[in-house]
Design a protein around this nucleic acid. Structure first.
Lengths: 220, 220
DNA sequence: AGGTATACTGACTGACCAGTCAGTCACCAT
DNA sequence: ATGGTGACTGACTGGTCAGTCAGTATACCT
């Protein structure tokens, strides 16, 4: 673990078409099972402290099997992040492109965040990225390229259009789209650290945030 | 590392009064040196992956010496967090209690954040807490009790006073003081993950945030 | 000088774990 | 049947590292 050369990327073994099911009827997708188990173990103990023996046990698989699907522990981690985060971005961009009043679009995005990230295991993946990213440049880069830069761009577009229509108080927001998503990040971090001391009502938090940005919500 | 009983707390060995200096004139405070080295190693590699051999080497000390000052690796981590974060809170509370216009107080707090946290190694400690906290309930609890709850209370007081004077747009903020500090957290996370792709001007970010909360800054 | 106390050292131990690989077994094709 | 294929297994290896402790060095006695 001192200085890895590394390069390869994980590949599924030959063909994983329905064939070769061993036990019961349902296709036992090893790859999915391993990824799910890895998410549990990594987010529970952190990358370094997680044991592949435990991942295997949780996935109902022998340790060697993991190495049929992923070249090593680090690649497993990377594929985990990719597989969980990847699919969400396009949907997000679509949401941000709709040409409706900014407040409405923002509300939809917030809903989506609460439902698809905060309400799922995806928030654990984001927490993992925050925690482990600094030590895994490839993860950080993937995440920046595939997620952050696209989110920032989409939000910027949304806000610029809103500013042109005079819907929004400041163009400062368009310079720092981070300000729009900041509470979401805080919620995720809070959830991981302090929820047992003082639970946080995310939906209310996000609503309050929108009120601050766009002014109080009018009842009508 | 599978299930630690643990209980003890670190104690300095007998008396560390000036006595017993070994080399040169200046008192070679082993404890400080070890804590400083631990901060480097922990924040660079994460708690689990950091090696106490490296901490010792960096501190210019043998590994055994660490165990004269700290009962084990975990206690070293806890003392590190305490020693770095602890001293700052009182100063923060003092800043928040001043009875001046809220905007002014907020600006001072932001300055303090940028200078004393973002501009120092303390931001690395906060990153460590975010990353490792979920796995170290004692750390999370200490941090909640000694920092978060006090910051939240102080900010709430500040905002309530401001709201009574009608200086502030929404009482939503007083319900969610998290919204006030969210950008600071985002800045720290961004700094650790994405600064090499897209550096973030923290001072400008925080200024923009204040403008959003209090309305544009009037030149006068 | 000898004696005692104690800060410090670093080689060592025991446990742990990523990654390996010879072997097993279900499922084919002939 | 018989042999071939390849997914899967899990005992094993080699390296790593937290924590230990017998020993050394230094200071301060008397």
């Amino acid at each position: 673990m001192a200085a890895r050369p590394k390069a390869s990327r994980s590949v599924r073994p030959a063909k994983t078409r329905g064939r070769r099911r061993r036990n019961g009827a349902g296709a036992p997708d090893r790859r999915e099972a391993i990824l799910a188990a890895a998410l549990d173990e990594f987010s529970g103990r952190g990358f370094a402290a997680a044991r592949l023996d435990d991942v295997a046990k949780r996935a109902g698989v022998a340790k060697g099997t993991i190495y049929l699907y992923f070249p090593d522990k680090e690649a497993l981690f990377q594929d985990l992040v990719r597989s969980v985060i990847g699919p969400l971005i396009e949907r997000f961009e679509a949401s941000a492109e709709v040409d409706l009043p900014a407040r409405l679009v923002a509300e939809r995005i917030v809903d989506m965040f609460v439902r698809e990230i905060y309400g799922t295991r995806r928030k654990d993946v984001i927490r993992l990225i925050i925690a482990e990213g600094p030590r895994f440049p490839e993860i950080a880069e993937f995440y920046y390229r595939e997620v952050i830069s696209r989110v920032v761009a989409a939000v910027r577009g949304l806000l610029r259009r809103a500013a042109e229509r005079g819907e929004i108080p400041a163009e400062a927001l368009a310079r720092f789209p981070q300000l729009l998503v900041a509470p979401g990040l805080v919620a995720i971090v809070w959830n991981g650290l302090f929820d047992r001391f003082e639970p946080l009502d995310v939906a209310a938090l996000m609503r309050a945030h929108l009120d601050l940005l766009f002014g109080e919500r009018r009842p009508g």
